[in-house]
Design a protein around this nucleic acid. Structure first.
Lengths: 230, 230
DNA sequence: CTCCATTCGAGATGCGCATCACAGAGTGGT
DNA sequence: ACCACTCTGTGATGCGCATCTCGAATGGAG
């Protein structure tokens, strides 16, 4: 079932929030235009400033979207897992990549070129509305990130981030245990603070009994406390 | 020419970036569905959490888009002038308002309801693509705001903000003089810092001769210096 | 012309987080 | 089994900006 012919490709995009609620025929038409690409762990998928001419859907693995500062720092804008898609902005406005995408584990992606996508969407007004809705929701989330950065201190931003990560955990075992696979350095990069500060605050939460820590993971013990502490 | 009949309404939306490059007929069809609303200075147009069911276009005046924190603070997300539109997210995803819109001076807006807009856009795939492009560009700008908040200190964010405001000055007299009508308190709210800090940094810039200050306005004297200082 | 609200300028003090500098604990590669 | 590397934990020190508290300048309302 891993054969990348057009008859099976539509499975890759069927459960995509970006494209959900589209008729089956439309999905198949899009799937037929795409192809599969694999990336090893640590590989750069595309880089800030590159010409942007394709949409990627994560089939398997993990991708980090980040931006780099002049002074060598790096801010993580998002983490993508199976079913998420990225590189879509370039599709709509034809501008260069505004961020860098890196595979943080072995990753399989489904790729659709800009031309193919635009042609496909031009004939499907319903798809456009779904896309508008998706972008709209992303814009809301980003606006919220901005106000969080302005209003909230590190402890509250960290608690919120942990809860968000827990909510986006895949169904099943890890979900129930509320075990988030993330290093403290990654958390720091998402929050725009130093790794050391994250470490100190996590241990603070752990002392309260709200979370427990292990190498490469945080487990939430008391989500309610994280939501309402002050 | 202020009569709000459908024959003249299309002038309100013709030069709108959100809707630019659409055929005249399509514009007229949309204009026919809208109406004009006026707001006094200081009036709230809509409030965070309100049901969102209309798109607004600024015809004349100024509108501030802001979000409020629990602790009483307020962050300005954007300032809108003639030709800008706001409230569009609610149109696409049907969610409650995520921010508050306030008229900061006497303001005339052109309003289109969600239902009218969705019906209109459903029949016009080309319009959808233009809308996707617009949202896409906004998402890029917001992402940049996030990275600026993470990477840049107050002096650099302030310089950048001044240059951005200068670039969006209306054509004509004020544009040439690079005179930005904004109070230091407003700048502080846009940058997410205190009014006092903005004041100190502005005076620093003024001492360098890069800007000059007057009540309710900042005039850029040396844009190049603001762009490249360190 | 006077009053009052708004805006601006500036100093003192303190907190939050960065930065620097390590040390120990896991983990993967050969 | 070893070594190199990544991840974690923690203290010392310092800077940036918030906060608090004034006073002074400006401009509109009556």
């Amino acid at each position: 079932m891993a054969t990348p012919d057009s008859a099976t490709n539509d499975a890759y995009i069927r459960d995509l929030p970006l494209l959900a609620r589209l008729p089956d025929d439309d999905l198949k038409a899009l799937a037929a235009r795409g192809r599969v690409r694999r990336f090893a762990a640590g590989t750069t998928i595309f880089h800030e400033g590159d010409p942007g001419d394709a949409l990627y859907v994560v089939v398997e693995g993990r991708v980090r979207i980040s931006r780099i500062s002049g002074a060598g720092g790096e801010a993580t804008l998002a983490l993508m897992g199976p079913g998420d898609c990225f590189g879509d902005l370039a599709l709509f406005d034809g501008r260069p990549r505004s961020a860098t995408a890196t595979a943080t584990s072995v990753t399989r992606t489904f790729v659709v070129s800009r031309d193919d996508f635009v042609n496909w969407v031009r004939e499907r007004p319903a798809a456009s509305l779904a896309l508008l809705e998706t972008l709209s929701l992303r814009l809301r989330r980003t606006d919220e990130t901005v106000t969080d950065l302005v209003f909230l201190d590190l402890p509250h931003r960290l608690a919120k981030q942990l809860l968000t990560l827990a909510a986006s955990l895949p169904e099943g075992d890890a979900r129930k245990k509320q075990r988030i696979q993330v290093t403290q350095g990654e958390l720091a990069s998402m929050l725009g603070v130093s790794r050391e500060s994250v470490n100190k605050q996590l241990n603070q939460f752990a002392r309260e009994g709200w979370i427990s820590l292990s190498r490469g993971a945080v487990t939430i013990q008391d989500a309610q406390a994280l939501r309402t502490f002050d």
